[in-house]
Each structure stands twice: as C-alpha cells, then as structure tokens.
C-alpha cells in the first residue's frame, strides 16, 4: 500500500473580514458591528445572539482583525484559561467576548466578566459580545451580569437561507480551485446541518482529502472520506 501524498501545507487567506459577511437578514447587526470599530470616546456595546452557523464568530473575528486595538476572548475555546483571561483583560479599544454562554453558571467567571463589563464602562471601551441566546435566556446565575448584558444593543442573528449558504460554499471552493458539482452540494446540504462555519470547514477538509488522494470530488468519494473519518 502506498502512502497518500501529503498535500502542501498551504493556507488560504482567512475570510474573516466584515466585507465577506453575507448579511442576509442580519444587515443591521453587521452595521452595528461596523459602527463599533469607531472609537467615539463613549462606552458602547453590542450583543449578537444566534444559533451555531449564524455568523457570530465570523463577525467577532472580523471585528478583531479590523479594529485598531482589540482583544479577543473566545471563552469556549479558552476553557480553563477563560478566568485568567477575563481577569487580565484590559479595557481599552475593542474587547470581543465570544461565546459568553460558555461560562454561564460558573460563578468565578461570571463575576470576572461582570467586573470586566464595569471596567469597560468606566474606561469608555467598546464591547462586542456573542452568545447562543439573548441574555435573559442564558443560564447565567449572577443577576447583575444578566442585567448588564441586557443593557446592550441586542441583535438576534438569523441563519442564512439555504441558497445563500450554497453560494458561499461554491465561492469558497472556487477560491481553492475546487469545483463543487450540484450533486455534491445537494449531498452536503442534506447530510449536514445548515451551519455555515462547519460546512466551510468540511469543504476545506474535502479539498485537502481530494488533493491527498488525487481524486476528483464526487459523492462516492465524499462518502468514503466520511466513513474513514468515522472509523
């Protein structure tokens, strides 16, 4: 058996720019985030709530990319480091708190975020918070934190309609020199939830797999890749 050829370790420019965000029903949320990039000398805060795949992380990371001074606190992936990160965060420029629901119910983290919020307000920083749900539906125990989050401008992000998701995937694939047939697209849309971030990463992985196997991207090939990942 021959070892598959290793694909080049070549990364494409990350697409996390606000200009790449397909607004769909979320145009007002996008405009709010854009406005947050401008330092007006006053405290300002926006909270984006929405299901996975609705573009929260895209907006949050693009804001970090495009702001002059920004700190990024992805609370879910920081895991146990979320607490020291919250405690150490400075309140200058833009502070982006991604996945606030990840710390719901964890008292020390909730207090640290509450404290960060208060510092941000008195230092006139700008806050961008993302969350799976609107504040009063989160399982946050500290009422003081809920009330502060609920004082922000709040937008619920809605999933892109399916035809827009398809357009994004075709676009993404084309950028990588990959041709997504209608058949493959149908398969992907049926097989996976309409979570844009996850679908993009699947397309990326399929691209890598097809390069390694030197095979065209067909439905049977994808099936085999998925099977091999499972086993």
């Amino acid at each position: 058996m021959t070892t598959p050829q290793l694909p080049l370790n070549f990364r494409f420019p990350p697409r996390t720019r606000l200009a790449h965000f397909l607004p769909g029903d979320n145009a007002v949320a996008l405009a709010s985030v854009r406005q947050l990039l401008v330092d007006t000398g006053e405290f300002a805060g926006v909270l984006l709530a929405g299901p996975a795949g609705s573009g929260k992380t895209h907006l949050a990371s693009s804001a970090v990319q495009e702001a002059n001074t920004a700190q990024y606190l992805p609370l879910r992936s920081l895991g146990a480091q979320a607490l020291p990160a919250l405690e150490a965060a400075l309140t200058t420029g833009l502070v982006v708190i991604d996945d606030v629901d990840a710390i719901a119910g964890r008292r020390a983290e909730e207090i640290a975020l509450f404290d960060l919020f208060n510092r941000a307000k008195s230092d006139r920083a700008r806050l961008l918070v993302t969350s799976a749900e609107l504040p009063s539906r989160l399982a946050i125990h500290l009422p003081d934190l809920v009330s502060r989050l609920s004082s922000l401008v709040q937008h619920r992000l809605r999933l892109l309609p399916e035809f827009e998701v398809r357009a994004v995937l075709v676009d993404r694939a084309r950028e990588r020199g990959l041709d997504l047939s209608g058949e493959v697209l149908d398969f992907l849309m049926r097989r996976f939830p309409r979570d844009l971030g996850a679908l993009i990463s699947i397309v990326d992985q399929l691209d890598v797999a097809s390069m390694a196997a030197q095979r065209r991207l067909t439905v049977p090939f994808i099936r085999r890749v998925i099977e091999s990942v499972k086993t």
């Binding site: 145009a27 007002v28 405009a31 009330s147 004082s151 922000l152 401008v153």
Partner: peptide, 21 residues
C-alpha cells in the same frame, strides 16, 4: 417590567435599528 437596564437595552436596540434602517 423588570429593571432599568432592560429598558436601556430596548432603547439602545431600537435606536440602532431606527438609525441603520
């Protein structure tokens, strides 16, 4: 009906929506 920060949030949200639309 809850607290003043909720009202503030509603007003901030309303104002952003009115402004951008």
């Amino acid at each position: 009906r809850s607290h003043v920060r909720d009202l503030e949030g509603a007003l901030n949200t309303l104002s952003a929506r009115a402004h951008f639309t």
